[in-house]
Amino acid sequence: VETCNTGSSSGSAHIELKGSYGCEVRDSYVHGGRTSGSGANYGIWIMNINSDHKIENNIMRHNRHGIVFEGGGSGCAILYNYIDDNFTEDLSYLGSARTNHGAHPYMNLFEGNSVSHLVADSYWGSSSHFVLFRNHLWGDQTGSGVPKKPSWGFIPVEVWHNQNYYSLVGNVLGISGKWQNPNWSSYSVIGTSYKSNSMMVFGCNSGNSNNPKARATAIIHGNYDLKTKGVANWEGGSDHELQESMYYDSMPVWWYRNTPWPPIGPDVSNFANEIPAIQRFNGKDSGNATAVINSNSGSLRKVNNGTGFNSSKTVIRLYSLSGKLVKTFENGEIVLKNGVLTEMHRGKLSAGVYLYSVQLPNGVIKRGVFSTPR
């Protein structure tokens, strides 16, 4: 599922993955259901037995739950999505995305997402072994297009009772300058009730009781919060160096050139930079280099302005928008003129939009996007 606009859904979900394996949902705008009542207007709904999905670079707004796991799901990667301005039939509540809404999702990765409110609830059972890595969890929303300003639920992340063995690593908790603009200095770092003013909540349920196991089994390591304006917990050991990504070995080929990599974390300048999905929603250009392809001859011209390439040592790779490798250009397939890359040949390419990466002799990789004429 790619580059879809799913506005004004009247059903349970805009995109539903049910009994599925190895699906990918990316680069889409999931928004605007006709109602946000119970069981309706889920953005991306991972329902029952599911595994090995990749949900990446999507915008999810004005849903009941931007994304929700219910009744299972394992081995899924939820990457670099923008989830904001969710609401339910209770307009006083800050709507949320859900890592769990029905037993038993487990061993899933949330990485690099920007989410107004994230909850693992216990209404329909348990979940476990989720990893939340380098996300920006707001505890607020922009308020754009929301029917009514909420008055409670301004908590970045909640892990309810029977939601065990969660790892929260390298996230940024809280945001300034949005709609509610909570007074984070009055918050506690860790709380036990979903109605408390806390950066993180563990072990609560829909009543007033609390089960300490959710907190006891959690690993809270290297999260920057606006309460302390620093990192309050390093529970994962003495090593405080965080890897850039748990999914990628290096910056992905589709990443916006002017956006820091990684974009979020206690070790990142500004702590929480706008991910590409937010920039796309706000109408900002990718900042990537452009190139022009001649679909008749199958040659790619003026890649990254064509400077500084050595044809015997430069490698150029073309990818589909989903990141699948399409072609590789190496020795003898790259044409230079006066030291400038002008063309590369390896058969005719189909019309469409491609990503490219250029690996220079010094190891530097340049990336961009281009489209073929139709």
Rank of each mutant, 00 (worst) to 15 (best):
residue 76 C to Q: 01
residue 42 Y to D: 01
residue 368 G to F: 02
residue 80 Y to M: 01
residue 209 S to W: 07
residue 151 S to Q: 14
residue 129 H to L: 03
residue 266 P to C: 01
residue 360 L to A: 13
residue 325 L to R: 07
residue 126 S to H: 13
residue 145 G to P: 02
residue 2 E to M: 04
residue 286 S to N: 14
residue 89 E to N: 15
residue 217 T to A: 11
residue 195 K to M: 13
residue 56 E to K: 09
residue 148 K to Y: 13
residue 64 R to G: 05
residue 110 F to A: 09
residue 326 V to L: 12
residue 1 V to Y: 14
residue 23 C to Q: 07
residue 59 I to T: 12
residue 274 E to V: 00
residue 167 S to D: 15
residue 372 T to C: 11
residue 192 T to D: 10
residue 96 S to N: 15
residue 155 I to G: 07
residue 282 N to C: 00
residue 148 K to E: 15
residue 356 Y to S: 09
residue 259 T to K: 06
residue 130 F to W: 15
residue 155 I to Y: 07
residue 263 P to K: 08
residue 192 T to I: 06
residue 46 I to G: 02
residue 246 M to Y: 15
residue 106 Y to R: 15
residue 226 L to I: 02
residue 175 I to V: 15
residue 38 S to Q: 15
residue 2 E to W: 03
residue 323 G to W: 03
residue 237 G to T: 03
residue 290 T to I: 00
residue 239 D to W: 09
residue 45 W to P: 01
residue 289 A to W: 08
residue 147 P to C: 10
residue 357 S to K: 01
residue 259 T to R: 07
residue 214 A to E: 01
residue 229 K to G: 03
residue 31 H to L: 08
residue 180 Q to L: 08
residue 62 H to W: 15
residue 257 R to G: 07
residue 60 M to L: 14
residue 54 K to Q: 09
residue 153 G to P: 02
residue 39 G to S: 07
residue 225 D to L: 00
residue 77 A to E: 12
residue 169 V to G: 02
residue 353 V to H: 05
residue 257 R to I: 02
residue 198 S to D: 11
residue 44 I to G: 04
residue 192 T to S: 13
residue 89 E to K: 13
residue 279 Q to N: 04
residue 57 N to Y: 14
residue 165 Y to W: 12
residue 161 H to P: 00
residue 367 R to K: 10
residue 229 K to M: 12
residue 68 V to R: 13
residue 219 I to W: 07
residue 342 T to H: 14
residue 241 E to M: 06
residue 143 G to S: 10
residue 68 V to P: 00
residue 45 W to Q: 09
residue 169 V to Y: 06
residue 274 E to G: 00
residue 62 H to F: 12
residue 55 I to S: 05
residue 21 Y to T: 10
residue 344 M to V: 14
residue 97 A to E: 08
residue 208 N to I: 08
residue 346 R to H: 12
residue 62 H to E: 04
residue 223 N to S: 00
residue 198 S to G: 10
residue 131 V to N: 05
residue 139 G to Y: 05
residue 360 L to E: 12
residue 123 Y to V: 01
residue 180 Q to W: 09
residue 364 V to G: 10
residue 284 K to I: 01
residue 322 S to A: 11
residue 203 G to L: 11
residue 82 Y to L: 05
residue 194 Y to G: 12
residue 196 S to G: 15
residue 283 G to T: 04
residue 224 Y to L: 00
